[in-house]
Each structure stands twice: as C-alpha cells, then as structure tokens.
Nucleic acid binder design. Structure first.
Lengths: 155, 155
DNA sequence: AATAATTAGGTGTAAATACACTCGGTTGAT
DNA sequence: ATCAACCGAGTGTATTTACACCTAATTATT
C-alpha cells in the first residue's frame, strides 16, 4: 500500500487552484489595501478605521453588533478594531438602554480625524475609479455584493 | 474660528464612502474567506495555507521572495505565514545557491495535507461558482486582476 | 415565579497583514 | 582590492481577522 509516498500532485492543474475565488479576492484585497494605504500614509486613520468612522458619521450612536452587521465584519473582530480608536479618543463607548448592549459614538476628535483623512481617501478613490472606469466599477461592485450574499450562510 | 467644533459630516453623502473600492473588496474578502473556511473546517489547512501549498505543488523549490511575488503577498507577511507550516512539517526551508536566499519546499507531510484539503476546497469552489455563474466568474476574475495591476505601484 | 433559551458583548488564542528597520551577502564602480 | 549600492530575508510592532468559549442580561416557556 505504500502509505508513506506523497501523492503525485503535479498531475493536478494549477489553473484549477489558481482559479480559487477566495485566493483571487484576497489577493485583490491585499493589493487594493496597500494602494489606499499609500494615500492615507500621513492621515490619522487606516483604511478599516476610516470605514468604521464613515458609518458612524451618518448613524450614531450604534450598538456594536449593529455596526458589525453594517460593516459585514465579525462582531469580535470589530471589538478588537475599536480598541485603537478608543485609545486615541476617536470614538467613545456608552451603555445602551439594554444593559447588555454598548453604544459606539464618534467623538469630536474622531470627527476631525475623519475630516482630515477624507481628502486623501477621495484622491485614492477618484484616481482608481478614473483608471478602472466608473461604469465598470459600478458593475464590479454589484458583482462583489452578489458574491457576498452567496457566501453568507452557505450551508 | 471655533477650532474646537467638530466638522459637520452629516452633510457628506454616505454613498460616497460606501462606494469605497477598498472597503467593498475587503468586505467581500471577509465574507468569501468565511465561506471557504466553513468547507475547510475539518481540513489540515486554512485557505491561505492552501494557496501557498498549491503553488508549491507545481513549482518547487522556490525562494521566499519569488513565492511572495506569485502570491502577491508582502514578503514579510509570507515569512510569518510560513511559520505554522514549518512547525507542522508541511514545508521545509533549505539554503539556496545564493547564500542570502532560502528555498521553500513541500514535504511529504505537506503533500498529504494538501491532497486531504483539495476535495473540500473543490466542493467550496464548485458550489460557489455554480451559484455565481461560470462565465460571470471568469469575467469578474479578469476584472479583479485589472484592479490588482492598477493598484500596484500607483505612484 | 422559576427556569430555559436567547441575545449582546468580551477574551484566549492563533493566523494574516504590512511597514520600518536591521543584517549579511552580492554586485558594481572606482 | 575596496567600498558603495543593492538585494534577500528576518524581527519589532501594530492592526485585522475570526473561532471557541465565557458572562451577564433579557425573553420565552412552563
């Protein structure tokens, strides 16, 4: 039976695994994140933090779970991501009516940090979409949304 | 000048920041990663590890920098990602001709781990692409590749 | 009213990500 | 032959991600 021999995997087509949707989306995420990061280099906020605050500028205060839902982010991930924002006084946490829930609010310092980051983000966004194509991006975004719905609760 | 007042950000259209390409791609990456993870739950490899090994099944041995380039992954990120794979004896590191470089090779244990994970990955991939549409995915993948090239060395 | 089930949230642990910096080896210019 | 420039790779630090598990509060069931 030769149970110690490794399987011959060269026979497998790499194009199969190279087609992995997870790999391709993650790869793109890495690349695009570095792109935006280069624009935000001298801003007080990183990309994820900018996303979080951008939601809060519109809807505030929000319980943590609701914020996580909007961001399509694991609740426990968000808890961790909020920590540096609290430490730098960009957001504040207050108790909700329901004693279990905790509400996230934007502070004045946070508003300023967001306002300071916004122009840099706009440059990154404008520059990229101009190169990629506005219409093409609108379509791509729609397809990404579809991919999101297809991968939520797959079972 | 009232420098202590926070800027009025409600005036900003949330649809602007909600259109952020970085946010949208990262969000999709989170969702799709969890989807694949649910299929690989009982496999020896996580998604990123599967991607790394899948490259090595075809081209081996590879210097770390070259592997990082193929994966479109920061070299220092890859260094960190290789650590658990070394610890579990899925890959091995050997010195290259150039004494600076270090070559990554697949071990027999690693081959088996990959072979064991492959069917689960195939299920995830097949299931998702079937729902999304093969042709649509081919197009989407091409557009993701475009996004990658546009965000590499943007300056 | 007592208890079971559910819900909001945090923590332990581990992986993934990347920038700034460092070190040693290699190559190129003088 | 020397020295500067460059290249391959690792580490310190910090953020992002998420599963398993825990606690406390609330709601539903009996």
């Amino acid at each position: 039976m030769n149970s110690t021999t490794s399987p011959d995997l060269r026979a497998l087509d790499l194009s199969e695994t190279a087609n992995c949707a997870c790999f391709n989306v993650r790869k793109t995420a890495r690349s695009i994140t570095q792109y935006y990061a280069s624009f935000l280099a001298n801003s007080p906020l990183k990309e994820t933090q900018f996303s979080i605050l951008s939601v809060l500028t519109q809807t505030e205060p929000l319980p943590i779970g609701k914020l996580a839902e909007i961001l399509l982010m694991e609740r426990t991930t968000l808890t961790r991501n909020l920590k540096p924002l609290i430490l730098r006084d960009f957001i504040s946490i207050s108790p909700g009516k329901d004693k279990r829930s905790r509400l996230v609010s934007l502070t004045n310092t946070g508003s300023k940090a967001f306002a300071e980051t916004l122009p840099q983000w706009q440059k990154a966004q404008k520059n990229l979409i101009a190169k990629f194509g506005k219409v093409k991006w609108a379509l791509l975004r729609k397809q990404l949304t579809t991919l999101q719905s297809l991968t939520i609760d797959p079972m």
